[in-house]
C-alpha cells in the first residue's frame, strides 16, 4: 500500500481520538468539519468518558478556600490550579462526577444558594435554574451511567426531595416513604456517589445509610458496616465505583452480593495506620492512596498514604487555605449548555 493512498478507516481514527485529553480534542476540532462534529456526538463523548475514567484514571480535585481549587494530576507528579470557573461569586464544590463539577454559592452551608455546573476541561460553566427558598437542605450530585444523565438532589426536612436532571433541564419532586427519617440525613460528613446511586450517612437514633438510585429515583435505607469506633470524621466515599466508608483508620467497602444472593455485603478492607495517622483526617481514597489534609501554618497541603507500601507522601499547596475536600475528577467533553 502506497502512503499517498493510505487512509485510516473512521472507526480507527475515532478509537485513537478517544484516548486524547480534552485539551487536545478542543484544539483538533479545527482540523475538519467531520472531527468538529464527531466531538459533539453523544456516542463519542460517552466512549471518551469511558476511556478517561477507566483507563487514564481520575485526577484529584481539591477545594482549598472558597473559589480556590487545585488539581493533582493522575500521574501524581504535578499539582496544578485548574482553570477557575468564571463565576462572579465565591463558590465551593458540592460534588464531582464523571467530568462535571457541581458548585454552590453560599456562606451558609445548609441553605441552598445559586448552583452551577462546571466542566473544568472545556471551561464551560452554567447556572442551574432553581426556585430559591430558605429551607434547610442537603445537596448532592451524581452521574448515572444507566440513563446517561447528571442529577442534583436536594433533601429537605419534612418536604419531598427535589431532583434536577441535566438532560431535561428541570427539577421534579421525589417523595420519600417516611419524611421523618429524612431529618437526620447528611448531618455526618458529606455524600458519596457511584455511577448508580448517591449515599448519605443518616443519624436517626442510630447511624444508617440512605441511598438514592440515580436511574430509578428511589430512596432506600441500607445497613451500615459494623464499625468498631465511630470517628467524628466518619465519611462515605466512592472507591473503585463502590460505596466505601472511612471511620478514622477503618476502611470498609460494600460489595454487591454475588449472583443468587440478595442485597449487599460490607467487608472491612483495611485498618491503616501507625500512630501518626490517627490525628489526621482522611478526606478520600484515591488510586490506592488515602488522602489526608494537613495544616501546619504556614504550610498547608495534603498527605497521601499508600495502602500497599504504607508510605506517606506530602504535597504542599500554595496559599493560606487548608484543604476542605478532595474529589475524584475525570475529563469529559460533555456540554452543560446545549444537551438535546
Amino acid at each position: 500500500m502506497e502512503d499517498n493512498e493510505f487512509f485510516l478507516p473512521h472507526e480507527i481514527i475515532s478509537s485513537i481520538l478517544k484516548r486524547l485529553p480534552v485539551k487536545s480534542l478542543l484544539r483538533f476540532r479545527c482540523v475538519c468539519k467531520d472531527w468538529n462534529d464527531l466531538f459533539k456526538t453523544s456516542l463519542f463523548i460517552k466512549e471518551h468518558l469511558h476511556h478517561s475514567s477507566h483507563h487514564r484514571g481520575p485526577s484529584l480535585l481539591l477545594q482549598c478556600g472558597y473559589s480556590t481549587f487545585s488539581m493533582l494530576d493522575s500521574d501524581k507528579k504535578t499539582l496544578l490550579p485548574p482553570s477557575a470557573p468564571s463565576v462572579n461569586q465565591p463558590v465551593y464544590i458540592i460534588g464531582s462526577s464523571y467530568g462535571l463539577v457541581c458548585l454552590q454559592h453560599s456562606f451558609q452551608l445548609r441553605v441552598s444558594g445559586s448552583l452551577f455546573l462546571w466542566n473544568p476541561s472545556t471551561r464551560e460553566v452554567q447556572c442551574v435554574p432553581q426556585i430559591k427558598n430558605n429551607h434547610f437542605c442537603r445537596i448532592a450530585f451524581g452521574f448515572s451511567r444507566v440513563v446517561n444523565d447528571y442529577k442534583i438532589v436536594k433533601i429537605f426536612d419534612y418536604k419531598p426531595a427535589e431532583v434536577y436532571s441535566l438532560s431535561t433541564g428541570s427539577w421534579k419532586k421525589v417523595e420519600f416513604i417516611n419524611r421523618k427519617l429524612l431529618k437526620g440525613v447528611g448531618f455526618l460528613g458529606s455524600f458519596a456517589a457511584t455511577d448508580q446511586a448517591i449515599y448519605w450517612l443518616s443519624y436517626h437514633n442510630q447511624i444508617d445509610i440512605l441511598s438514592f438510585d440515580l436511574a430509578t429515583e428511589v430512596f432506600t435505607f441500607i445497613p451500615r458496616p459494623d464499625v468498631q469506633y465511630i470517628h467524628r470524621h466518619i465519611r462515605l466515599i466512592a472507591y473503585e465505583n463502590k460505596l466505601a466508608l472511612l471511620s478514622g483508620i477503618e476502611f470498609w467497602v460494600m460489595e454487591e452480593a454475588t449472583s443468587g444472593g440478595s442485597g449487599q455485603r460490607w467487608s472491612k478492607t483495611k485498618v491503616f495506620g501507625g500512630p501518626c495517622l490517627r490525628s489526621l483526617h482522611p478526606l478520600n481514597i484515591w488510586r490506592n492512596e488515602v488522602v489526608f489534609d494537613f495544616e501546619h501554618q504556614p504550610k498547608v497541603g495534603i498527605n497521601l498514604f499508600n495502602l500497599t507500601s504504607n508510605k506517606l507522601k506530602e504535597f504542599l499547596i500554595a496559599g493560606n487555605y487548608g484543604i476542605r475536600s478532595a474529589f475524584h475528577y475525570v475529563e469529559t467533553l460533555a456540554s452543560i449548555g446545549d444537551r438535546n
Binding site: N4, I16, L17, L20, S24, F28, V31, C32, K33
Partner: peptide, 25 residues
C-alpha cells in the same frame, strides 16, 4: 492507538491534517 494519541498531543492542527490526509474543509 495510545502511541498514536500520545504522538498527536504535541502536533499542530496542520501536522494532524498532513498525517491523516485531511483537507481543511
Amino acid at each position: 492507538c495510545q502511541t498514536a494519541a500520545d504522538l498527536m498531543k504535541g502536533m499542530t492542527v496542520s501536522q494532524i491534517r498532513k498525517i491523516f490526509h485531511i483537507k481543511n474543509d
